[in-house]
């Protein structure tokens, strides 16, 4: 059986509003200064909006701390991840900045694990490009520190961008791989539960009602004809990753012999005002070499028919009357 490796990047640039404490903290970082916040008898850095002991809201009463401080604890990262501030080995350290009573956890760029130790003095360094984010800065051993002249920015920092990009890799589950192979072969493959007799497409490798595992032996080929039981006309909303722009018909279609509809089937070539629930349709597959299933993943929510169907065309049969719709309607 063919295997279908899939890879997917879950990526979004989150825009975080910052409020009365983190906003000034990031503004200061951009402008070359580090702020702590007064909380009773102590100065907390990075600053927080509340007294950690009582939960009481703190006045935004800041004090400048650093730019140097003392390493309280560290670990040397031999193999950084792609999310770390440095792609060569570095240290994460807990650093008590001069004037602060709590340690900030940040990255220290040093020659090697022997070049960092608890009690050692380190100094903050400001990146050339600063946007108002915790990644605007890093630390180095005080001896390695460069004198920097920082030009303050103009506006207060009110937002920070936190881009999260995570890569996931897996293979299509066995039942879905067979469904996909079917689509590539121009066929609709579903699964029939031996326990309930119901046919699902795509099969899930189990029957959630009968509570039994299904195997390749339970696969069934379904007809390419079916009935649209409901539909909507969608005007696409734009968001990151959305490529659709024009309104289209999205229909739920029960293939003949199936007990579960194919959802979100795009219908083109039939005017919206001629489309109706009950219409009989036939899937016309694309030519063998043009069928693409790249967007099919393992998710239960987004299992499409890929890009294998040229179009859904009316069979010319009489409409199925509402009262004869499958059980669920």
């Amino acid at each position: 059986m063919s295997e279908f490796p899939i890879s997917f990047t879950l990526e979004y640039p989150y825009e975080r509003t910052l409020g009365p404490v983190i906003g000034p903290f990031f503004t200061a970082l951009r402008d070359g200064r580090v702020l702590g916040i007064n909380c009773g008898n102590r100065v907390i850095c990075p600053p927080v909006e509340y007294d950690p002991d009582t939960g009481a809201t703190l006045e935004p009463d800041f004090v400048e701390v650093g730019p140097a401080g003392t390493v309280e604890n560290w670990t040397w990262i031999a193999e950084p991840t792609s999310k770390h501030p440095f792609q060569e080995p570095f240290a994460f350290a807990q650093i008590k900045l001069d004037g602060a009573d709590t340690a900030i956890t940040h990255a220290v760029k040093a020659a090697g694990p022997d070049a960092i130790s608890t009690g050692m003095r380190v100094k903050i360094q400001f990146c050339d490009e600063r946007v108002g984010a915790i990644t605007d800065v890093y630390f180095v051993p005080e001896a390695d520190a460069q004198e920097q002249t920082i030009t303050p920015g103009e506006k207060e920092v009110r937002k920070t961008i936190h881009k999260i990009s995570l890569v996931y890799k897996e293979k299509l589950y066995p039942s879905r791989a067979r469904y996909v192979q079917g689509l590539l072969d121009g066929k609709f493959i579903g699964q029939r539960s031996p326990k309930t007799g119901k046919v699902s497409i795509p099969g899930k490798g189990y029957d959630s009602i009968g509570r039994v595992t299904l195997s390749e032996a339970d696969d069934v080929e379904l007809s390419a004809t079916g009935t649209a039981v409901s539909y909507t006309v969608i005007t696409p909303i734009q968001y990151q990753g959305q490529t659709k722009t024009e309104p289209y018909i999205s229909a739920m279609i029960f293939l003949d012999g199936s007990d579960q509809p194919l959802i979100a089937q795009e219908v083109h070539g039939i005017p919206a005002d001629e489309f109706r629930a009950g219409i009989r349709l036939r899937a016309k597959f694309k030519a063998a070499g043009e069928r693409n299933i790249d967007d099919i993943c393992n998710s239960w929510m987004f299992c499409s028919t890929g890009d294998v169907i040229e179009r859904w065309e009316p069979t010319g049969e009489p409409d199925v009357p509402f009262e004869d719709f499958p059980e669920f309607i």
Binding site: F8, T9, L10, E11, Y12, T232, I234, I237, Y239, Q240, G241, Q242, T243, K244, S250, A264, D295, C297, S299, M301, F302, S304
Partner: peptide, 14 residues
């Protein structure tokens, strides 16, 4: 962005 999250970061989210 809710639409993004609901579509699992993919195009074609309805």
């Amino acid at each position: 962005d809710f639409m993004w999250a609901l579509s699992g970061g993919k195009s074609g989210g309805q």
